[in-house]
C-alpha cells in the first residue's frame, strides 16, 4: 500500500507519529502472528511493541522493491517472536499452545472482509497436501529446523526436506506476484 510507504518514509525521518499510524493499520494482524508463534498474549504484545520500535529504527533501510511493508513487518515480528520462543527452551517451545492462538480458518464475518491477498494465501495453503502444510507451519510458526520437524513428525529427514521444498515451490508458484 502506497500509504504504508509514505508513512514509512516519514518514520525514517524520525516521525514517531508515522510509526503509530502504521501500528494502527497493522497491529491486529501482526499481533495474531506473534500470538500464533508464542501462544501467549502478554509476550506477544511485548514483541509487538519491540517490533515497531525496530521498524522505526530501521525504516530507512526498508527496501520497497523487495516486499511490501506488511511482509517486512511480519518477518520482524516472526523473528522477534522466535527469539522469545528460543529463550524459553525447547520443551516449552514445542508445547506452546494457548487458547488464544488465532484460528487460521476465518469466521463467516471475517471471510467477508478478508483482503484479496489473504484469500489467495488461504487458497494456496489449502491446496497443499496436509503433510506439506504441517511441515511449513512447524518451520514458520514454531521455528523448528528440518531435523526437529523430522523428530516431531516421525518422518525421515529427506522426506521432511522434500515436503518443505515442494510446499514452498507450490506457494511460490501461486503467490509469487504478491507484494
Amino acid at each position: 500500500m502506497s500509504d504504508d510507504l509514505s508513512l514509512l518514509t516519514r518514520a525514517a525521518k524520525g516521525e514517531s507519529a508515522a510509526v503509530l499510524a502504521l501500528y494502527d493499520r497493522h497491529a491486529s494482524a501482526l499481533l495474531a502472528l506473534a500470538i500464533r508463534v508464542l501462544g501467549n498474549r502478554d509476550e506477544a504484545e511485548e514483541v509487538l511493541q519491540d517490533s515497531f520500535v525496530k521498524i522505526w529504527q530501521e525504516a530507512a533501510s526498508y527496501d520497497a522493491n523487495r516486499a511490501g511493508f506488511r511482509a517486512w513487518a511480519c518477518t520482524i515480528v516472526r523473528n522477534r517472536s522466535l527469539d522469545v520462543l528460543r529463550r524459553r527452551g525447547t520443551a516449552a517451545r514445542t508445547a506452546a499452545v494457548s487458547a488464544e492462538t488465532p484460528e487460521s480458518a476465518p469466521s463467516p464475518d471475517a471471510s467477508a472482509t478478508e483482503t484479496e491477498s489473504a484469500k489467495r494465501v488461504r487458497a494456496a495453503i489449502a491446496e497443499l497436501p496436509e503433510a506439506q502444510r504441517k511441515a511449513l507451519e512447524l518451520a514458520y510458526y514454531e521455528g523448528l529446523t528440518h531435523v526437529e520437524i523430522a523428530a516431531k513428525t516421525s518422518a525421515p529427514l529427506g522426506t521432511v526436506k522434500t515436503r518443505i521444498l515442494d510446499g514452498m515451490r507450490k506457494l511460490k508458484a501461486a503467490l509469487g506476484d504478491l507484494r
Binding site: L31, A32, A67, T75, E100, S104, G176, L178
Partner: peptide, 19 residues
C-alpha cells in the same frame, strides 16, 4: 527474496487480534 516474500505471506490467513 522471492521465497522470503512468499513465507512472509503465510500469516495473512490468521484472524486479526486487536491489541
Amino acid at each position: 527474496a522471492e521465497h522470503a516474500r512468499v513465507a512472509a505471506a503465510m500469516p495473512e490467513v490468521l484472524a486479526p487480534i486487536a491489541p
